[in-house]
Simulated scan of single mutants.
Amino acid sequence: MSLYRKRLRVVRGEGVYVWDSQGKKYLDLIAGIGVNVLGHNHPEWVSAIKEQLEKLVVAGPMFEHEERDEMLEELSHFVNYEYVYMGNSGTEAVEAAIKFARLYTGRKEIIAMTNAFHGRTMGALSATWKPKYRQGFEPLVPGFKHIPFNNVEAAKEAITKETAAVIFEPIQGEAGIIPAKEEFVETLRDLTEDVGALLIADEVQSGLRTGKFLAIEHYKVEPDIVTMGKGIGNGIPVSLTMTNFDVERGKHGSTFGGNPLACKAVATTLRILRKENLIEKAEEKFIEVKAKDVVMTRGKGLMIGIVMRKPVGRFVEELQNRGYLVHTAGQRVIRLLPPLIISKEQMNKVKSAIEGVINDLSGGEG
């Protein structure tokens, strides 16, 4: 569905705000669909990118460069995966993960979840569940099957010695900000280990946002492959596929993946997040919206879904009219993915604004 009846033309951003072509100011709670984790025009980040543009943008994957070393050093503060493969988008990271799983195990079957969203290229699309994304592109890549998310018994029945990997989102984003249940994640880990399959955590949307570097850390489970994208470069297209096993040189590659500009963007983003403790602070900024026609608020940290009894289109439109940009996840969920630099006080104002709009349009308090 369209986010707004009329598309908004944004022309500049500063911090947690953007301005449209008419000069109106908005609090940006979309952040490029979870991309601008440092907000817009962060001075330290912009300075580093400008400097890199004047120094070296691309080098080619056959060369080493200091920006890659810098990125890996910053990444080591958060995770201890031995190998990092760089691409240009979240869907590319998922494609790499699928390829690596089949190559490593020698098996073909990939198990994904109902309501999952992993991207729009052919392999990632095959793991993505909703028919609206898939229709018109069949036949998709063979070997994929879907099981109900958070269904332990379905997982036990589906995962066998034919399975190469199980891919899942610790918090399903496009599905409506639905966290995985602890028992389900533990079951996936146990079953994949038992049959020699790999566990892939897709953290493209959930990474950085939940109070921990990876949302999977809340479950104290270590997957075999992790994918990241979106906010990891704060706006420069970049993605990571992290593993503890190597892939033979030549089996996978990317012309632009791991270029000096992208590496500098990741290194600078991670350094600022670490220095300002923004990832940990995200957890305390979660808000719970209570208003008429609100079923629940779910998610973790600054990955928030407000589940409604009614379609959310008119609520989203009215919030825009009042200077708040929010996103959707399906027809009945208002989705918030704000910059991590947003303050707790600003999030409380967001809570009040959303509750006010919902109550005004729904005819009173719930």
Rank of each mutant, 00 (worst) to 15 (best):
A282Q: 03
I232A: 08
L240T: 00
C263L: 13
K281G: 04
F245I: 10
M242Q: 09
D224V: 00
G235W: 07
I279N: 13
K292S: 04
K220L: 15
H327C: 06
G313F: 13
K290Q: 07
I232R: 04
M228N: 06
V221F: 09
R298C: 02
N259A: 14
R271I: 10
K212G: 03
G233R: 03
P237E: 14
N259T: 01
L278S: 06
L214R: 04
L302R: 07
R322W: 01
G258I: 13
E284Q: 11
K290A: 04
I287V: 12
M242G: 08
L325N: 07
I304Q: 01
K212Q: 11
D246L: 05
K230S: 13
G229R: 04
I225P: 08
R274E: 08
L278H: 04
C263D: 12
R249Y: 14
L278N: 08
G250E: 10
T227P: 02
I272F: 06
F315T: 13
L261Q: 11
K281V: 01
E217I: 12
V312Q: 03
P260G: 15
I334V: 05
I287H: 00
P223S: 14
E217K: 13
K220R: 07
L278K: 10
T268A: 01
S254W: 03
A282I: 15
T243C: 08
T297N: 04
N321W: 04
R249E: 07
K300E: 15
T227C: 12
G301F: 04
T227H: 05
F213C: 01
H327F: 00
M308S: 12
M296P: 01
V312N: 10
V226T: 10
L302W: 02
K230Q: 11
T297I: 09
G323C: 00
V289L: 13
T255D: 09
R314E: 04
R309T: 13
P260L: 14
R314Y: 07
